[in-house]
Amino acid sequence: MLTTLPKALTALALVSTALTAGATVQIAPAHVYTAQLSGASEDPPNASTATGSARVGFDIGTHTLTIDVTFSGLLGDSTNAHLHCCTALPGAGTAGPATSTPTLSGFPSGVRSGTYHHVFDTSLASTWNNGFINSHGGIAGAEQALLAALDNGQAYFNIHSSFAPGGEIRGFLQPVPEPGELAMLAVGLPFVLVLARRRRG
């Protein structure tokens, strides 16, 4: 009995540690945002029939910004691309580039279709537009401002081209629900359905 007690306590401690670690992962994962890119989303809208999608992952704790983009059918050759921030209103207006200028590192130029993947270190000044850093009091302030804008729909991804130098296709980035939030929604859904049925009855 006495020899099994320490083993049980050790097992309990391991389970507790695992649960705590799991909880930490669920509470503070990298934030993920997506956008559909189009000419109609530009300001002002243009006649481009091109399409695209952007996926941005931002982990402010590890200073990691991951950008994945696909696009096709541009009416002009691609010239540059940026993550823009921060508009005054969610989903509307324009803002200057938050990321490096004249374009994102390695973004395909002179093409009408393509893909892009890059992981940036947001603790480095080279990731940012200098004006964005300066207007937010340094790199830490720039990180916080971008995260807040992404969470509130005030940042967009923009692909510029020879057809539309100000931007041929863009899209405002929206948060993707975290796995924990989806699980909570799944758990609560049956109760919502029961309440709806009762009200109908």
Rank of each mutant, 00 (worst) to 15 (best):
Leu2Cys: 06
Lys7Gln: 04
Ala13Asn: 14
Ala13Cys: 13
Thr17Asp: 11
Leu19Asp: 11
Val25Ile: 13
Gln26Gly: 09
Ile27Glu: 03
Ile27Asp: 05
Ile27Asn: 06
Pro29Trp: 11
His31Lys: 08
Val32Ile: 12
Tyr33Leu: 01
Tyr33Cys: 02
Thr34Ser: 12
Thr34Leu: 12
Leu37Asn: 10
Gly39Gln: 02
Gly39Glu: 02
Asp43Trp: 09
Ala47Pro: 05
Ala47Ile: 06
Ser48Tyr: 10
Ala50Pro: 04
Val56His: 07
Gly57Gln: 05
Gly61Glu: 07
Thr66Phe: 03
Asp68His: 08
Thr70Phe: 08
Phe71Ser: 02
Phe71Pro: 06
Ser72Trp: 08
Leu75Glu: 06
Leu75Arg: 06
Ser78Ala: 11
Ser78Tyr: 09
Asn80Arg: 09
Leu83Gln: 05
Leu83Pro: 04
Leu83Met: 01
His84Gly: 09
Cys86Phe: 05
Thr87Ala: 07
Leu89Ser: 13
Pro90Gly: 10
Ala92Tyr: 14
Gly93Glu: 05
Gly96Pro: 13
Pro97Leu: 03
Ser100Cys: 15
Pro102Thr: 02
Thr103Gly: 11
Gly106Trp: 10
Gly106Ser: 04
Phe107Leu: 01
Phe107Cys: 01
Ser109Asp: 12
Ser113Thr: 14
Gly114Leu: 11
Tyr116Val: 10
His117Thr: 14
Val119Met: 08
Asp121Tyr: 00
Trp128Ala: 03
Trp128Cys: 05
Asn129Gly: 01
Asn129Cys: 04
Gly131Phe: 04
Ile133Trp: 01
Asn134Glu: 10
Asn134Met: 07
His136Tyr: 12
Gly141Ala: 04
Ala142Thr: 15
Leu147Arg: 14
Ala149Pro: 07
Asp151Pro: 07
Gln154His: 07
Ala155His: 04
Ala155Leu: 09
Tyr156Phe: 10
Ser162Thr: 14
Ala164Asp: 08
Gly166Thr: 12
Gly167Cys: 07
Arg170His: 11
Phe172Cys: 01
Phe172Tyr: 04
Val176Lys: 00
Leu182Lys: 04
Leu185Gly: 05
Val187Asp: 03
Phe191Trp: 15
Leu193Gln: 14
Ala196Phe: 15
Arg197Leu: 13
Arg197Lys: 13
Arg199Glu: 11
Gly201Pro: 09
